[in-house]
């Protein structure tokens, strides 16, 4: 219901946005989907993946390579981008999920950096740090408004899927594994297979985000696979709050708009970002979405008290 309203609002927003506004909101939706995919692992399954850039980048490169080298139409590359990122997630997940905590996190980081190195050095295939450019989708999807609607559609499908997943037996099983893995396995939940599927789903959704981002930017570079991309998902999630369903998407929007704002005025964006994260972690551990919920709670209580007093 609340999700439906959000999607409707974004739908109506389209025609009133400027060219620049469309691009910015599209990018926020893409980063939002990417951060939500990260949070499926982080919040529900209790896994801190520092290698999400691998799936984001593979989705982007699958699209870029097929469009530029094989002449595929942009949209036709979507299923391949999804499958490729899911497959890479399956392999990386299979090898890392058995490890515990910090080792899992380090291994996901290592695999992503490995893919980055490959994309960076393999000139003949990926173009190395020249990247793959000129990726404007043919036809109307090359225009900002239709592309915004495609982005919104995929965002809505992805977020709707994650919302359903959270309430499904699978979602509960992930939470059970996070809360108390030994207990979950003792009631018959196969920890490894559940976490692996969660990893693959998160990878596939990250791949969709990469696919869209490459088309939005009209180019794909090795930095799509670089660890700072993985960090963007984590930062968005901390900003927005991992414990609230839409928190990471809220955080992604806040992250982008703040970056635009700060970069327009100063050169100290990394400094501001660091300060902001510090404040969030220390004073608002539940993120912006948590702050919002608190405010809403106070207002509701205040109104009730006011009504009782009057």
């Amino acid at each position: 219901m609340r999700l439906g309203l959000l999607f409707l609002g974004l739908l109506l927003l389209g025609p009133i946005l400027s060219e620049y506004g469309l691009k910015l909101v599209s990018e926020a939706l893409i980063l939002g989907l990417y951060a939500m995919a990260f949070n499926l692992l982080f919040h529900q399954a209790g896994l801190l993946s520092f290698g999400q850039a691998a799936f984001f980048g593979v989705g982007a490169y699958a699209m870029a390579l097929l469009v530029s080298r094989a002449g595929w139409p942009f949209l036709a590359t979507l299923p391949v981008a999804v499958l490729a990122s899911a497959l890479v997630a399956f392999i990386i997940g299979f090898l890392s999920i058995r490890l515990t905590r910090i080792y899992f996190t380090m291994l996901t980081l290592a695999f992503a950096q490995l893919l980055y190195a490959v994309a960076h050095k393999w000139y003949a295939f990926t173009g190395g740090d020249n990247g793959i450019t000129d990726l404007r989708p043919a036809g109307i999807l090359g225009e900002s408004l239709p592309f915004y609607y495609l982005t919104l559609l995929l965002f809505a499908l992805g977020v709707g899927f994650l919302a359903a997943l959270e309430r499904s037996p699978f979602g509960y099983a992930l939470r059970g594994l996070r809360d108390n893995r030994a207990r979950a396995e003792a009631v018959g939940v196969d920890g490894f297979r559940h976490l692996l599927l969660a990893f693959v789903l998160s990878g596939a959704l990250s791949g969709v985000a990469g696919f869209l981002q490459g088309a939005l930017q009209r180019s794909v570079f090795p930095d799509y696979l670089f660890w700072t991309r993985s960090a963007e998902a984590i930062i968005s999630t901390i900003l927005g709050g991992s414990g609230v369903f839409l928190g990471p998407a809220v955080g992604a929007a806040a992250f982008l708009f703040l970056r635009v704002l700060v970069q327009a005025n100063t050169e100290y964006w990394p400094f501001f970002l660091g300060l902001l994260l510090l404040v969030m972690v220390l004073f608002f551990p539940r993120g912006l979405a948590g702050v919002w919920e608190n405010l809403a709670g106070w207002v509701a209580r205040g109104v009730r008290r006011g009504a009782a007093g009057g």
Binding site: A164, P169, G171
Partner: peptide, 30 residues
């Protein structure tokens, strides 16, 4: 230490589905 983030009913329902090997439903709500 049952599943601390759930409601009592949810924890037991999940357990039931777990024993039955029926937790791979991704879209239907619990």
């Amino acid at each position: 230490q049952p599943f601390a983030s759930m409601k009592v009913r949810e924890a037991v329902t999940l357990a039931r589905l777990g024993y039955a090997g029926a937790t791979f439903h991704l879209l239907r709500p619990l």
